[in-house]
């Protein structure tokens, strides 16, 4: 259907002044998108590889975790791609989770004073980055022998 080009449209990213609160909002969208695509496809691949038996699980691991001692340069590159992706999805998860909790609290009508909005937004980043670092260190220490 043709749209009247003169009709007012809602303001977009480039209109707003950057600040913690508007960034939390667009990050919620971006991180939801990352999990919905890259995150869910990797999760499905992992589940299918378990259902497929030891060999298919080993194939999954050789791509996503490590190609082992005699990994080719290509495999090492793929491993690092997936490790960075995993880090990105982990951060996305915590960022989205904490800003999602903030959404739910604000839906209850709490925290609309300007100062509170700002404080909660900054708290979301701190909590997300802390949780991501914690999980990354746990995983590195326990499962990759690093």
């Amino acid at each position: 259907m043709a749209q009247n080009p003169n009709r007012p449209i809602s303001p977009h990213l480039q209109i707003y002044r950057w600040g913690p609160h508007m960034a939390v909002s667009i990050f919620h969208r971006a991180t939801g998108f990352v999990m919905a695509t890259a995150g869910m496809l990797t999760l499905l691949w992992w589940l299918a590889s378990i259902a497929g038996g030891p060999e298919s699980y080993a194939t999954f691991q050789s791509y996503v975790v490590s190609g082992g001692e005699e990994a080719t340069g290509m495999q090492v590159a793929i491993n690092w791609f997936f490790r960075l992706l995993a880090l990105g999805v982990t951060y996305s998860f915590f960022q989205h989770m904490f800003s999602g909790i903030r959404h739910l609290l604000m839906d209850l009508g709490a925290g609309y004073e300007l100062k509170t909005v700002r404080t909660w937004s900054i708290a979301v980043y701190i909590a997300a980055l802390t949780a991501t670092a914690l999980v990354a260190m746990l995983v590195a220490a326990r499962f990759m022998g690093a």
Partner: peptide, 17 residues
């Protein structure tokens, strides 16, 4: 995606490893 994932989990749980 949901059908695929659920099928894989169910298949694994029902048929064993």
């Amino acid at each position: 995606g949901a059908a695929f994932g659920i099928f894989m989990v169910a298949k694994h749980a029902f048929t064993g490893a």
